[in-house]
Write a protein that binds this DNA or RNA. Structure first.
Lengths: 187, 187
DNA sequence: CTAACAGTTAGTACTAGGTACTAACTTCTA
DNA sequence: TAGAAGTTAGTACCTAGTACTAACTGTTAG
């Protein structure tokens, strides 16, 4: 693909773009793409501070390995720190900027909801449950990096219906409250 | 960490487990973990058909490179198929088993909530919004693989508060309804 | 008791995809 | 036309392996 001469600056700009699009390219492939020697590619990466292929692949792998876990978790969102089955429970969720809006760094609502819902499910003494009705309120926006402490309380149980209240706090201040009605399914 | 003799079978079982938990372990680290030589680790991997570290890392990277994009999207959960800013909108979310409980294959509530909430945000004509209050109800469980069609309608606007109703259907049948009050933040 | 075998270890040659470095060549430019 | 910038070539070395041969250890069957 010998593009007929482009400047060093231009090549380095394109190289950066190419590698952000596809971090799996080897120096050898880049050599063919830009029609320069492998040493030039390596000098470019050195100047631009772009690590080698294996390092780039590892970074992508590590980044997503934790991210996916955090989103879908095993089952519960946040870390369960206390639990009395059928009574109450506490979970902690450390927020990060991946959970937030890019502009404002305010945590997206469904992450908070997910913590509350999954804690509510954890506290009831049933194998599988579904959220029937939820009445929720977000009191205050949460910033990326803040630690969410969720407290759940089973208030009533009627047949296979559980009424659970969940309150989420950031340093004593309430940021969320939710009333869930969970329905357990017997198999 | 020389565990005092374990059988080959047992070691290979544990090795498989260790590597599914943490695919970033080198043969050298595994050698220390199991107290055997590096050749034994390599024979084990060969017998078990487990590829080398760099291949494993690459697989994790490639797998998630596409998956994560689908989970967090740019901003909206599901695909936006129709939108009249300030009035209404429709989004479609194709569910899969990663969004469901392992046992029952029923979609976890917060994914449905996330689709509804993000659609509600998309329809209101404001840069950034937060969910203030949500009153929601799950009518019917959703199975993995079903296609969720969400319809949002802005019913009232008062100052920086927007009242949005969202209904989600699976083939004409309503599975979710939510009333959101969204608050736009002016910067 | 010993031969046979599984299991383990040791060692060598080779690989990809590099780093780090020296040296030389080409091209532009003052 | 000298010198700097840019490019290319080549070498030694690195990691985390594969693929292979050879030898050693421990158990077990005849």
């Amino acid at each position: 693909m010998g593009n007929k001469k482009i400047s060093k600056k231009e090549r380095q700009r394109k190289l950066t773009k190419r590698l952000t699009e596809d971090p799996f390219l080897t120096d050898e492939e880049l050599m063919d793409i830009f029609g320069v020697s492998i040493q030039t590619i390596r000098l470019d990466r050195l100047e631009l501070g772009i690590p080698e292929l294996r390092e780039r692949v590892k970074q992508v792998a590590e980044l997503n390995y934790s991210k996916v876990r955090a989103i879908k978790g095993t089952e519960i969102i946040g870390e369960l720190v206390d639990l009395n089955l059928g009574e109450n429970g506490i979970s902690i969720l450390a927020t990060n900027k991946d959970m937030a809006f890019k502009k404002t760094h305010i945590i997206r609502g469904h992450h908070i909801f997910a913590q509350a819902e999954s804690l509510a499910m954890a506290v009831i003494d049933a194998d599988v449950a579904l959220t029937g009705v939820a009445n929720i309120k977000y009191n205050n926006p949460v910033k990326a990096g803040q630690k969410l402490i969720a407290k759940a309380q089973v208030v009533r149980k009627r047949g296979n219906k559980y009424f659970v209240h969940v309150f989420i706090y950031v340093e004593q201040e309430q940021v969320f409250r939710g009333k869930f009605i969970l329905v357990s399914i017997d198999e």
